[in-house]
């Protein structure tokens, strides 16, 4: 692995997108990659600079798209729910959906499309099963708000939050092969691989899954 950014340095950016490093680690060098919900292009930049990938992006916000293109990244404005249908089967080695699946209308359909257009699929999401989320709801009696889920219930784009256990169940239900799972704790460090799912679900603040058909 040649990712030179430390988890700490990413942790300290505004976006706290430490998951991107672990995603980048899962992508083979030189691959064709589609990053859905690519935001300001951080992951595409990491992937192209450090993994030499042929990267494309889809981003919902026009401002994000315009800034990506001005930086020389190949990005179009589009929506994960509606625009994946335009791509042919197996157009990419990897289809990446980072921190976006919880904001889609039909996560299951989106996942199906991802598995159609990508040989492998990488999905990351905030884990709603994390102990801090559970305790906020249990003892505070209010919708949880954390670093990864900073919005109030009334203005959050996250309409389909799930836990690691939920996601594993969906994959099983869809017959999707889980090749790797990485759960990250609050400090952006990887939890032990040998840790059972219920522990990952309790202590993982976010999760990164590598999937294939």
């Amino acid at each position: 692995m040649n990712i030179t950014l430390s988890p700490q340095s990413v942790r300290h950016t505004d976006t706290a997108r430490v998951d991107l490093l672990f995603i980048a680690e899962m992508v083979a060098p030189g691959a064709r990659v589609l990053d859905i919900g690519c935001g300001d292009g951080t992951l595409l930049r990491i992937l192209s600079q450090q993994r030499g990938v042929d990267g494309r992006g889809i981003e919902l916000s026009q401002a994000g798209v315009n800034s990506c293109v001005a930086q020389g990244l190949s990005v179009i404005q589009g929506d994960a729910d509606t625009d994946l249908v335009y791509y042919p089967d197996l157009a990419f080695d990897y289809a990446i959906l980072s921190q976006t699946i919880q904001a889609t209308y039909s996560p299951r359909d989106v996942l199906k499309q991802l598995l159609r257009i990508g040989r492998r699929v990488v999905v990351s999401f905030p884990n709603f099963g994390h102990w801090r989320v559970r305790t906020q709801l249990l003892f505070g009696g209010k919708m949880p708000r954390t670093d990864n889920l900073p919005d109030s219930w009334y203005d959050t784009p996250n309409i389909h939050l799930c836990t690691i256990k939920d996601f594993v169940a969906l994959c099983r239900d869809m017959g999707v092969k889980i090749e790797r799972t990485v759960a990250l704790n609050a400090y952006g460090s990887k939890l032990g691989v040998a840790m059972p799912v219920f522990m990952q679900n309790l202590f993982g603040e976010q999760a990164v899954f590598l999937l294939s058909r």
């Binding site: 064709r32 042929d54 315009n66 990244l73 179009i76 791509y87 042919p88 157009a91």
Partner: peptide
């Protein structure tokens, strides 16, 4: 045009300017 280019997995950027 973007959708047609997507359909052949072309390398495409698309910017709509307000």
């Amino acid at each position: 045009i973007v959708h047609a280019l997507n359909a052949v997995a072309a390398n495409v950027s698309f910017v709509e300017i307000k």
